[in-house]
């Protein structure tokens, strides 16, 4: 639809026309701000904790362990190139040899969700699979935060009481 709109504008005499081809879906998935009646909708991106400990692939388990201890979280996310998620150091990896580089100790390819996913459905899936927390990334794989199921449950319960919509 937007390519046709861009062409139409050019035929109408506009000379600097650009097409954001990935569109609104991409914007929402990246957790970026919006305007409109749905902006109070509960979403994973808004509920995710953003102070997640991270480390670079070549940093050691010892460094990751210190960051996790200071954060109150139970894992360290291994990121590269501006925050792209490579893997996760969970409790078992963090308990391993402290001189090992994160890239050699991490669990690769952890599950991630987009910032605008349906929160109700996501929490249902997390509960069914006994997942306590899940990474939220943008469409480019960059870390946005960590969504805790307890946080989502609490927000949904409060929304239920106040009639707020969850999506």
């Amino acid at each position: 639809m937007s390519p046709r709109a861009a062409c139409r504008l050019e035929t109408l005499g506009f000379t600097a026309v650009y097409d954001y081809t990935a569109g609104k879906a991409d914007w929402l998935a990246a957790g970026l701000p919006t305007e409109g009646t749905a902006t109070t909708t509960l979403r994973p991106g808004a509920l995710a904790r953003t102070d997640v400990p991270t480390c670079a692939p070549d940093e050691t388990v010892a460094i990751a362990r210190r960051r996790v201890a200071a954060s109150g979280e139970d894992r360290c996310v291994v990121t590269f190139g501006g925050g792209v998620v490579l893997g996760v150091l969970d409790q078992s990896a963090l308990a391993g040899d402290e001189d090992t580089p994160a890239v050699d100790a991490m669990r690769s390819g952890p599950a991630t969700v987009r910032a605008h996913e349906d929160l109700h459905a996501l929490v249902g899936r997390m509960r069914a699979r006994d997942v306590a927390a899940i990474l939220v990334t943008d469409p480019d794989g960059r870390l946005l935060g960590l969504l805790h199921r307890d946080d989502a449950d609490a927000a949904l319960a409060q929304a239920h009481q106040t009639g707020r919509q969850a999506r």
Binding site: M1, S2, R8, L9, F14, Y18, G23, K24
Partner: peptide, 28 residues
């Protein structure tokens, strides 16, 4: 908001031709 079906001379009157225009829809 200028829905594609209404895009024409009248509906674009408020756009500034001296500035770039970025159009978008839901996805690609």
């Amino acid at each position: 908001n200028i829905p594609l079906k209404t895009l024409g001379t009248e509906t674009i009157a408020d756009l500034d031709r001296s500035r770039p225009v970025i159009v978008y829809c839901w996805d690609s």
